[in-house]
């Protein structure tokens, strides 16, 4: 019987944290540079440390917007944080790409939050306004050339379709 996306991810070995954090840090700095309105919209909440717990994932992510830092952490060593958002990775990606509404996910019990509610709300609203496209941000972060970018777009779209998750913005959302 084929594995679902959460099952497949859960079965993956935990990635080495240092290279993952290095790449996430580059991605975060790139996003902050390309979308400065995110930090403006976060305002006084930019300094909050927000833990993202994608339930099926092998690691936790800590986002520190003001420091332009996104780090990966082993589940057995939860880092100090001001707020935590817990839910399926597929839902986080759908929200990021404007396919799902955060309140709807919250009403249905799929997303739960704890800690600084204001910071979570500000982050949700700032990211929703930014209309990010994760595929394009990864391509920009890696400074991929035209041919490599085309290949990555194709590969990430195929990977997203196979996994049933959104890795890019839908054409009609542009």
């Amino acid at each position: 019987m084929p594995l679902t996306f959460p099952q497949a991810v859960r079965n993956l070995p935990a990635p080495p944290l240092f290279p993952l954090t290095f790449l996430l840090g580059r991605l975060m700095r790139r996003v902050a540079a390309r979308h400065p309105a995110i930090l403006t919209r976060l305002g006084p909440h930019a300094g909050a440390r927000i833990l993202i717990d994608a339930q099926e994932g092998p690691v936790l992510f800590l986002m520190e917007p003001a420091a332009r830092r996104l780090t990966a952490h082993d589940r057995s060593h939860v880092p100090p944080h001001d707020a935590c958002i817990t839910g399926p990775m597929a839902d986080f990606l759908s929200m990021l790409h404007g396919l799902e509404d955060g309140d709807t996910l919250f009403f249905s019990g799929r997303l739960t939050i704890s800690g600084d509610t204001s910071a979570v709300l500000a982050l949700r609203n700032a990211l929703d306004d930014a209309e990010l496209d994760l595929t394009e941000e990864i391509i920009a972060t890696l400074a991929a050339g035209d041919a490599a970018a085309r290949l990555m777009r194709w590969g990430l779209r195929r990977a997203g379709a196979l996994a049933g998750v959104s890795l890019h913005r839908q054409p009609e959302d542009r």
């Binding site: 404007g98 799902e100 509404d101 309140d103």
Partner: peptide, 10 residues
């Protein structure tokens, strides 16, 4: 107005 662009569009 407190909802996302996904809610608004739908």
């Amino acid at each position: 107005r407190q909802r996302s662009r996904a809610y608004v569009a739908e």
